[in-house]
């Protein structure tokens, strides 16, 4: 994966996750006090970091 592809992918994900209309009360899937969506996204981003590190080696 090239640095340009890394940037493109990260930028795409940033727009998907951090832009656009928020429908009130629906942006987060929660059970109890745990926001499952954001918990999941943290895992995604952690994996993405690993992908990028691997790609740059």
């Amino acid at each position: 994966m090239t640095e340009e592809q890394d940037l493109s992918l990260l930028e795409t994900l940033d727009h998907l996750l951090d832009r656009g209309v928020v429908i009130a009360g629906e942006a987060v899937i929660s059970i109890g006090d745990v926001d499952l969506l954001y918990l999941g996204l943290n895992i995604v981003l952690a994996n993405m970091d690993a992908v990028i590190r691997t790609g740059r080696k």
Partner: peptide, 18 residues
Amino acid sequence: RAQLLERATFVAIRYGFA
């Protein structure tokens, strides 16, 4: 999402609304 944009402009809804 990217393919939809090639068709026509749309109002983006933030990921997570299901």
